[in-house]
Design a protein around this nucleic acid. Structure first.
Lengths: 125, 125
DNA sequence: AACCATACCTTGACGATCGATGTATAGTGT
DNA sequence: ACACTATACATCGATCGTCAAGGTATGGTT
């Protein structure tokens, strides 16, 4: 049973970096990736299957993930994903980028208004 | 001259909350909004005009912004935007949501791996 | 006259996400 | 035996936001 409801679309573009992140320490199949992201986020994020599988396929096509069919101990077939060398490189890049850019957005929304050089032409009131 | 280059599409969905934020303390026109976001972000974020104007129009249509033509002190006509009551409410909602969700993503990518209950069925390796 | 910054806008294409739907098996409870 | 839930894969159509590019026009500077 997935968490509660669907989170708003405020976070477009973050699915890739989250997938890469949870695959850093372990190989997982799609369903496990979704559960892991939900667990790590404290049940705040829900991964829709209609987003997850297209993401896994395009990342595999881009060479960031490698996929392999396996059977786990309960006898169920599942497609396990692991990071390739390219995927590890992209993981590092994207995590660093997320930190930088999410920090920038936070400064904007919390008004780090260093009104650098109060410029009368730009606004009033 | 806009900053350097176009930032990746990691932050889709954050434009609205940034626009609302910079309009909290002042009325601005489109160009001024873009400059303000760039300044507050420390020149990390670039707002493309093809994203900005559609966003301003749809937010006005949704009733979050009110627009008014004015002439500033240099004699140039410009369309100034301010928050409506609805816009102020949405600003508060969206900022709080951004803080919550960006925090969740950060926990995911930095592996707050409280492997809650190590579940052999979900992965191996 | 040339150029740059300011200031508005639209268009077409793209890509990612979402909700819905479909299939199938394993485990659990009754 | 039956029903139900969780597991596990996948695809589809619609929607939405963004982007790159282009277009118009004025004011200030060199």
């Amino acid at each position: 049973m997935p968490p509660t409801s669907s989170p708003p679309e405020l976070l477009q573009g973050t699915l890739d970096v989250m997938i890469l992140s949870v695959l850093q320490s372990q190989s997982l199949h799609g369903y496990g990736i979704a559960r892991q992201i939900e667990a790590r986020s404290g049940r705040l994020l829900t991964i829709e299957e209609g987003s997850l599988y297209p993401a896994l396929h395009r990342m595999t096509k881009r060479g960031e993930l490698a996929a392999e069919w396996r059977t786990n101990d309960t006898g169920r077939r599942a497609r396990f994903y692991r990071l390739t060398t390219d995927g590890k490189r992209r993981l590092a890049e994207q995590v660093s980028l997320w930190d930088t850019l999410s920090g920038a957005v936070s400064r904007v929304v919390h008004g780090s208004s260093r009104q650098a050089a109060p410029d009368a032409r730009l606004g009033w009131e």
